[in-house]
Amino acid sequence: MIQPKLQTFGALPAAQKVIAQSIDYADDTHEIAHIHHRSQLVYATTGIVRVVTPGGLWMLTPGHALLIGSQVEHELYMVGKVSMRTLYIDPDALPAGGAECRMLTVDALLRASLLGMFDSALDGEATAGSGAVPTRETLLVPLILRLLQLACARAPDKRLPLPVNARLRRICERLIAQPASNDTLEAWADEVGASARTVARLFRQETGMTFGQWREQLRLAEAMSKLAVGHTPGQIAQDLGYADVRTFSAMFRRAFGCTPQQFRQHLSETD
């Protein structure tokens, strides 16, 4: 079994409560499984990030960030060109307990504070007799930590659960890679060497959903990410294995209370 890579930052930044890093990724970039000693806040100003841990999948649509706990193994998949602004946070500076990952709504104040961590103009310049000038870290880190504390307190569980059972995990990973697959539960069960009845029981037991419900939730997550990077409903319907765009639109509206076009319009208004 390949051990996940441990990413560290050396001794110099060790005393900092928050380390800020800006990274740009090309479409379809994959960050292999790794862990950090610190918690990580993943936020994309453009593009979509899919985060996969041993216990779940999160799709970071615009206006959301993911707080990944310390020592939590995770992989990152980029959808579209991604401009990531990420913070590595001393776990002792965050609320104790809670889920391994938390999807947070990024409101205007939190967004401005996060982006301010990358604005060197906020460091200012010392003038004669003025004494020490606050840096962006001393100005913003206490505010960011307080805003994250508030956001964590109201963060719902937005993950798509992933099973631990090795045979179910194989099915889910194949579907994540090929969400358009319409293979039946019986076909998948035969492929992994189990009975359909066993697979159906384990899906309910480990994810709280039927196989069909899980696949639909995966497709909804994929649909949101594709809409966010400019794909048309017709393209998405074809990519996700729907018979036609009308069937896809009806499913989307049933789940979210709006059409794919309305959802995309809302995204453009919040950019």
Rank of each mutant, 00 (worst) to 15 (best):
M1T: 12
M1D: 10
I2L: 10
P4F: 01
P4R: 02
K5P: 00
K5G: 01
T8P: 01
F9W: 10
P13L: 06
A14C: 00
K17Q: 13
I19V: 13
I19P: 00
Q21V: 10
S22V: 06
I23H: 15
D24P: 00
D24W: 09
Y25L: 13
A26P: 02
T29A: 11
H30M: 08
I35D: 01
H37E: 07
R38D: 01
L41P: 03
V42G: 00
V52T: 14
V52D: 04
T53P: 03
L66D: 02
L67F: 03
L67S: 03
I68D: 00
E73L: 01
M78Q: 15
V79L: 14
V79C: 08
G80D: 08
S83H: 14
S83K: 15
T86H: 09
T86R: 13
Y88H: 15
Y88K: 11
I89S: 05
L94Q: 09
P95R: 11
G97C: 08
A99K: 08
E100Q: 12
E100H: 05
C101G: 07
L109H: 14
R111H: 09
L115G: 06
G116Y: 02
D119I: 11
D119C: 04
S120C: 03
S120F: 02
G124S: 09
E125P: 01
A126W: 06
T127L: 12
P134I: 10
E137W: 02
E137V: 03
T138E: 13
V141A: 13
V141E: 15
P142A: 12
L143Q: 12
L147N: 07
Q149D: 11
Q149N: 14
L150P: 00
C152I: 08
A153E: 09
A155Q: 07
P156W: 05
K158P: 00
R159F: 01
R159E: 04
L160Y: 04
N165P: 01
L168E: 03
R170S: 13
R170M: 11
C172W: 00
C172T: 12
E173G: 04
R174M: 11
R174H: 14
A177R: 10
Q178S: 13
D183P: 00
T184D: 12
L185S: 08
A189Q: 09
D190T: 11
E191C: 06
A194T: 09
T198Q: 10
T198E: 13
T198W: 10
V199R: 04
A200P: 02
A200I: 00
R204A: 14
E206I: 07
G208Q: 12
M209S: 12
T210K: 04
Q213S: 10
W214E: 07
R215W: 06
E216I: 06
E216L: 15
L218T: 03
L218M: 08
L218N: 10
R219I: 05
M224T: 12
L227H: 07
A228V: 10
V229N: 06
G230R: 07
T232Y: 00
Q235D: 11
I236T: 04
I236G: 06
I236A: 09
D239I: 08
L240C: 12
T247V: 14
S249P: 01
R254Q: 15
F256L: 15
G257D: 04
C258I: 08
T259E: 05
P260I: 11
L267I: 13
L267Q: 11
L267T: 13
S268N: 12
T270N: 09
T270G: 04
